[in-house]
Amino acid sequence: MNQDSFAEGHSVIHRIDPRLRLVGAVALAVVVAVSYDFTTLITALALSLLLALMAQLDLRTVIRRLLAPILFLLLLWAVLPWSFKGESFLTWGLITLTRPGITLCAQISLKTIALMVTFMALLATMTVDTLGHALNRLRFPDKLVVMLLITFRYLFVIEQEYRRLLRAMKIRNFQPKTNLHSYRTYAYLIGILFVRASERARRVHGAMICRGFSGKFFSLREFSPHPWNGAFCFFITFSLILLIILEWVV
């Protein structure tokens, strides 16, 4: 499990204050999500690619991470064009592809890819704990920040536990087959993971209480000023204004 591979770079984007990146990404997401004009969407895609380029993301990893949403989009392309009512575009026998259906698919696809790439460039370039601290500084509720950080921390522990159990099954010659025994074994595996996770949650909570935890989250992280912060602000503001003009004014 290596979710942090984008976080280890040293590009311009990596050095920009995480809070600005977070706010920028959310602002871009809102504008792109409510836009339907193709010029706007293509500009948004171009901007996201520019951000990815600035963040020096590895192209192959970007594509690999886009596979899951692309799979989802293919599903849309398989269903929407013929099931959506409207002016016909192409007719093959019984199947009629409609123009509005295809337009909608294209809009959704462009939005999805543009936003995914933007988030990879701006948010995936920070570690999860940096994200947590940035959210905390942006006055995000303590409870949610603590939950995010602790989930991230114990994901690894639970994964290790899962692997241990899997090994224990393997060394006793467990081979998954399509039978009740296999299903039951997997059910046990999942069950025991839940039991262990809840036991651990209880112990961790105990450990936190022992050290005076009362629900308040303190962040030690200092986000130091960087000359690029201003430039980044300008770039994001400029992009937002450009997208808004393309969508609503032109």
């Binding site: 114990y154 005076g212 303190f218």
Partner: peptide
Amino acid sequence: DADDQLFSPTVLDDVAFGPLN
């Protein structure tokens, strides 16, 4: 189990957790 005790992402965060509280 040390994994129960160390719940913060980094060592400094974790050691400073008690004093901050």
